[in-house]
Amino acid sequence: MLVRKHKSKELLQETTGDRIFGVFNTGFMVLLIIACLYPIWYVICASFSSSGAIQANVGKLLWPKNFNFGAYKMALQHPLISSGFRNIFLILLGSLPLQMVMTILCGYFMAARRVMFKKYIVGMFMFTMFFSGGLIPSFLNQKSLGLYDNLWALIIPGALSLYNAIICKSAIDGIPNSLFESAYIDGANDFTVLTKIVIPLIKPTLAALLLYYGVGTWNNWFSASILIENNNLLPIQNILRAVLLANDQTLNSAAANTNDINTFAETIKYAAIVISTVPILMIYPFLQKYFVKGVMIGSVKE
């Protein structure tokens, strides 16, 4: 026993190599954090600076130069940015409930144990996950359905992600089968089982899926660039893309005061980035406690 205790103490002692590794590991992680955070900090500082100071700045930017809120004032007052936020919130309001309902129903069906032709139906689901008609047929199909240049074009086609439905299915598979059998013996139907047993038990997973759908919808600019022609119907990410790539022509075209736009022509880009990023970042802290638990459900089997 004494020999074993002595050996265990030696194993617990930190060696010189462990200390060296810890120092290098800590230093590397600090440098990695700085490399990841500095671009964000640069954008924030530039958004509160004057355009002339940013254009004259050479090298790193640690603090705002000629601190002012002019770029944010111009960005928030611009009609295209305000309509972009209105459109993206309308899209989220319409798409998130539809996506969650479709995902829960699809996941519950794939997790069901006694369903006729389930194997073949799930096979059809999986086929659509790997093969699609392509961009042009999808565009022609949505145009023929009257979805072109309409916000519904950004809501209905993305109503279900099969990948997220598979995650939901894995969470349902983790529920003991005895709960379902007890509910059926007591006379419950599938709707009651789904609403009273399944949904309350997989809330962490649903919160993670809600975050997936929300971030994906918020960042989706490609669909709108193809299906939306009216600038007043474009979501905020498309407006941001136009600001960054079109040399501010989108902003200049509808500007009420050209001199103000010219004054903040450079910094308004950074202000638009911050404005379009902050809302989605504010949602994550409220779902963080469910996020890790939600993505882990179904990943470990006993």
Rank of each mutant, 00 (worst) to 15 (best):
Y184N: 10
I172D: 12
T195A: 07
S223Y: 08
M110E: 05
V274W: 00
N247V: 09
I226G: 05
L160G: 00
L233E: 04
L145R: 08
I40W: 08
L31G: 10
K119W: 12
I81H: 04
G70I: 01
I40A: 05
S178F: 15
Y148W: 13
L92H: 03
I54H: 03
P137R: 04
F291G: 08
A183R: 10
I44M: 04
Y72H: 01
F291W: 01
N177F: 12
L245E: 15
K289H: 13
W63D: 01
I199V: 13
G27T: 00
E14A: 05
E181Q: 14
P97C: 09
S83C: 04
L98H: 10
G70F: 00
K143N: 12
N164K: 13
Y184V: 05
Q13Y: 10
I104N: 12
G27A: 03
I185K: 04
G146K: 05
T15M: 00
T103H: 11
F89N: 06
V243W: 11
F127Q: 05
N220E: 15
E302F: 11
W63H: 07
N189F: 06
S299I: 11
F117E: 09
L31M: 03
M29K: 11
L244E: 10
N150E: 13
T195E: 07
A256N: 07
I40Y: 06
I197S: 07
K203E: 09
F67M: 13
F264D: 01
L251E: 01
R86E: 03
E302W: 08
P200C: 09
I172Y: 08
A246Y: 12
